[in-house]
Design a protein around this nucleic acid. Structure first.
Lengths: 142, 142
DNA sequence: GCATACTCATATCACTTGCAACGATATCAG
DNA sequence: CTGATATCGTTGCAAGTGATATGAGTATGC
């Protein structure tokens, strides 16, 4: 009969830690502002990249296109971004932050940095090695 | 104006890696057997712990009690476990694997071990340090 | 002993999710 | 050009989710 310890199973450990961390962070901005994880990701990307399409965000932010689309619609309704069609290729949208969108990011980014700082302190030494190893897990093994 | 890179944001990296790994693994057993992550976790715990209550599983396996309850119901319908009421405290259930449940675990555990092995190889050196650091992120900061 | 508060598992609610299908636009072969 | 094929963003749908309510069972205080 096989032995197996869930507690020691790496995919499980990753899932638990990720879920906890994600929840802690989302509580921070759900408390101050009313925002979901997909919305946060879309805002961040627009903040960095300037006007881009849904497709672009989908690729860079690891979310399904319908998720991006719905997040974008909510953000538009809330006044944080605008949608216009790309004149060069009218299948594409051009999403851009509004003044309000930039202002919101200016509020959130310090909170995000502070939260990450706290995480790093919890982790203690060798955070660089940790992150390096973490990213190795992304390698496609087909 | 603040700078912020989502790609370098630890909670984001964790979420992406965890989602990918989880998906890769679940494809393995969704392909062979028809099973979700919550079902897998419940089965594993029963395999290790013997007959226990929903509450017990909830606590040990990091899932909401409604999630456990629903996973258990699906597994019961599929014939992998049985529910009976605990005679000593009739609020509690006693969930136990059936023969079929044990047989299924004997099929899956080798696949799980193989998958984890592949992950560890991808990670390269210092996997122990990585796991140690990973778990430090769990520390409750209230 | 009996009312009250608590605990366990399930049911219900509003909401999110991934997937597939769709309409609109763009590209390409002939 | 024109018909076939591909891509973009949205939407419909079935399934899953967490939070809360519910109902049955148990423990506690007086």
């Amino acid at each position: 009969m096989s032995q197996f310890s869930l507690d020691d199973f790496l995919p499980y450990q990753l899932a638990v830690v990720s879920a906890r961390v994600s929840r802690e962070f989302s509580q921070i901005y759900a408390e101050h502002f009313d925002m979901s994880v997909p919305e946060w990701r879309v805002l961040v990307h627009l903040h960095n990249a300037g006007p881009v399409s849904i497709r672009e965000i989908q690729a860079r932010v690891d979310m399904d296109k319908s998720k991006v689309s719905r997040a974008a619609s909510r953000l538009e309704k809330a006044g944080f971004l605008t949608k216009e069609t790309n004149a060069d290729d009218r299948r594409l949208l051009k999403l851009g932050l509004t003044e309000q969108g930039y202002a919101r990011m200016e509020q959130i980014i310090p909170l995000a940095n502070k939260f990450e700082q706290e995480l790093l302190e919890r982790m203690g030494a060798d955070t660089d090695g940790f992150r390096e190893t973490l990213l190795k897990l992304l390698k496609d093994n087909t």
